Amino acid sequence: MAGVEIVVGYLFAWAVRKARRVAGRADAEVDAGLDAAMDRLHEVVSGKLGHDGSLVRLANEAEAGQQALSDRTRQWVTLAVEDAVEQDPEFAKALREAVAKIQAAGGSVGGANVMSGNTFMGPTAVQTGDHSRQENHFGPKA
């Protein structure tokens, strides 16, 4: 399945959104359709992978307030999902459907569009926004 990196990005976005809700920092207006689609993706992946160590680490990084997954965790989750896709065509189909629903619902979480598969050498700036809010990130968060 092409686009496993997108799945990993959405999983992290789901975990970040969940951590913010638990901490009481969720936006007042939450898109119910996108929430449901993100929840479905998490159900599909966690239903297949269970308590895989890579998913535990993904959740821990989100709860710690990281703005992005560490490279190692991203690789572990990607490999776990890729392996499951290769082994189980039904899982691959459910995953494609879940991603399509997220993309149809807007494909962003809290204004943070998923960006993956990029390699930057040297100083890099990433800018994202949701029409009413903008975030600028320059280098690692201190």
Rank of each mutant, 00 (worst) to 15 (best):
V77Y: 01
A23K: 13
R57A: 13
A92T: 02
A36H: 06
D52E: 11
H42Q: 14
D88S: 05
G117C: 09
Q103F: 09
E29G: 14
V16M: 14
V114W: 03
V44R: 04
L55E: 10
V77I: 11
A36M: 01
S70D: 08
G53Y: 03
K101L: 06
L34V: 03
A105L: 04
A26S: 13
L41T: 11
A80M: 11
A59F: 00
V99R: 12
F91D: 00
A26W: 04
A23C: 12
D71H: 00
G117Y: 12
K18W: 13
E63L: 02
R40K: 10
N113I: 13
N118P: 01
D52V: 04
V81W: 12
A23T: 10
V114N: 01
V44K: 04
G111Q: 11
N60I: 01
A26G: 10
V81P: 04
A112V: 14
S70M: 11
Q66L: 12
Q127A: 07
F91R: 06
K18D: 11
Q75K: 13
G106P: 07
Q66K: 14
D35A: 08
Q87V: 01
P89W: 02
A98P: 06
M38W: 00
R72D: 15
V22Q: 07
G47M: 07
T78A: 13
V126L: 12
T73E: 13
A32K: 12
T78Q: 11
G53D: 08
A13W: 04
A26C: 12
